[in-house]
């Protein structure tokens, strides 16, 4: 995280923080997040659902899973609807963005954020946090970047990010409900386990080494 973003968030509480940077990945907790949104415009679109699961001690702990819907202030775009199938009508009774920001802040506190193509989650969570005077600030691990590092990312027409589902299938890992925020968070968590374990073949893997791969190989 650069000085500029720190300055920009002056006065906001940092979540999750940088304390765990030098620790082995098996000794820290990760919060693996996936979001579905009204569309993919990072400044305009809004979160409609969020899913998360904790990885602790190198294990994905199923009963830590978290899932919620969010009532957006703008309609769900047709393109997004085709992906996650959440209609505006279904979301009308859901809590607002504050509840989502609070839940994710609690889940992320003291943990490392993990997401697939994490730049999207980072942008949406950052905006959500700002409404609660919070600042997303800490190491980020992107499983798409780890896949590239391990030469596992297949080329796909029209996209530069390796598809989550295809990566899981290629590795023989189970695919949880695709394009559902919790399903994708669970699949992403399994990818994290597989990738970090494979990276260990070359030596100990720390949060820093995962974050550096993310910076080097991620699309930021």
């Amino acid at each position: 995280m650069g000085i500029l973003s720190r300055l920009a968030g002056r006065g906001h509480a940092s979540v999750p923080g940088w304390e765990m940077l030098e620790r082995n990945w098996r000794d820290v907790e990760f919060c693996v997040v996936d979001l579905e949104a009204t569309g993919l415009h990072l400044q305009r679109d809004e979160i409609v659902s969020y899913g998360a699961v904790i990885v602790r001690g190198g294990r994905m702990v199923v009963n830590t899973r978290l899932y919620g819907l969010v009532r957006p202030s703008r309609p769900v775009s047709e393109a997004a609807l085709l992906v996650h199938a959440l209609t505006s009508a279904e979301l009308v009774d859901a809590p607002g963005l504050d509840a989502c920001a609070d839940a994710l802040a609690e889940a992320l506190r003291g943990r490392v954020l993990v997401a697939h193509a994490a730049w999207i989650e980072r942008a949406f969570i950052g905006r959500a946090f700002a409404t609660r005077r919070l600042r997303l600030d800490g190491p980020v691990v992107d499983t798409a970047a780890l896949a590239r590092e391990l030469h596992l990312a297949p080329r796909r027409a029209g996209s530069t990010e390796p598809a989550l589902e295809q990566l899981a299938l290629d590795l023989g890992l189970p695919v949880h409900t695709p394009h559902h925020a919790l399903g994708d968070a669970l699949t992403t968590a399994e990818l994290l386990l597989a990738f970090a374990t494979r990276l260990e073949a070359a030596g100990p893997v720390t949060v820093r080494s995962l974050a550096e791969i993310t910076q080097r190989r991620g699309l930021y």
Partner: peptide, 13 residues
């Protein structure tokens, strides 16, 4: 400890 905001979310797989 986290709790599912929507407790009926099933871990189907």
């Amino acid at each position: 400890m986290l709790r599912a905001a929507w407790p009926n979310v099933r871990v189907k797989e």
